[in-house]
Design a binder for these strands. Structure first.
Lengths: 153, 153
DNA sequence: GCGAACTGGTTCCCTTTGCAACCAATTGGC
DNA sequence: GCCAATTGGTTGCAAAGGGAACCAGTTCGC
């Protein structure tokens, strides 16, 4: 048996990709089936529900999504009456986006469900392992960002 | 400051998604820039380089990709002369796919580069942490698969 | 205060991706 | 042996996502 590490299954970025896709598909399916929301839409709602009114620019930072994705998600949510826009006095180009009453209602309904799903996903890890995992993930992410920066030059 | 866990940034599936995307983008950029390969194409080459001739069906299992993705990747690699097809005596519907000489050459060139990139990505983790991370990832993946199964019924 | 550079938001286009329908070859029941 | 069900592979289509160009409003230099 080949002792080298070339086996795709042992390549960490591959493992991350496969696992994360499985997790994302699971969660996307839940949100879609129960609330008709896509992940980008849910992310926007999550940020607005937690932090109140935001401009699209702030949502880009908060969700780490592309500004086009944010824009589309906001448009859909607005059409569904889940978020409203109000003019931004400081800057005529942008608006403040905020959950409507219906939006808050849905947010309050989904949040426990989302946390429950996370709980189940991590059920086989003890609290120390959960902390450890999040921490390692963050460190790997930081390395990726660092390497990406170094490459651009 | 809100003490609840609703903050998107603390939601593990979100962290996984953001981090994995960063890693994937980094690696995809490298493969594309240096070898003109997309991730699916590289995955197919990795499996063929490690395990020899395979049918598309076996590649689907080995890479965890969609059969359409495998098919397209194989087509591209064939056109570039990196893999060749030979008839499958046991089953007239499928072919055996195998790296050509040029394919092996490229594979031998990329592999150290890929491992080096993985090494850099994990440079801030000690060996025990690397093992731990891979193991936790695998357990989370198993939970996701399990939950997905339970849902379908 | 006026033009240039910039920034938030929007639209358009193109690539990637996955699903579903489909064809061809194989296997199983009888 | 033949029809039905299955499976490997392929094609077509439609949705998702990102990049680049674009518009409108703002800020900076002078």
């Amino acid at each position: 048996m080949s002792a080298n590490l070339s086996r795709l299954a042992e390549f960490v970025p591959y493992q991350m990709s496969v696992t994360t896709n499985a997790v994302s598909d699971l969660i996307a399916g839940e949100y879609r089936a129960r609330y008709g929301l896509k992940i980008p839409e849910w992310r926007v709602m999550a940020v607005l529900g937690d932090a109140g009114a935001k401009t699209q620019r702030e949502l880009v930072q908060g969700t780490r999504m592309d500004k086009v994705a944010v824009n589309r998600a906001c448009k859909v949510l607005e059409e569904r009456g889940l978020v409203g826009r109000s003019p931004n006095a400081c800057d005529g180009r942008s608006h403040h986006l905020e959950l409507t009453r219906a939006g808050h209602k849905m947010h309050a309904e989904i949040m426990p469900h989302a946390l429950e799903m996370e709980r189940r996903l991590l059920a086989s890890l003890d609290p120390a392992e959960r902390r450890q995992f999040a921490q390692l993930l963050a460190r790997i992410g930081a390395s990726a960002v660092e390497l990406e920066k170094g490459k651009t030059k």
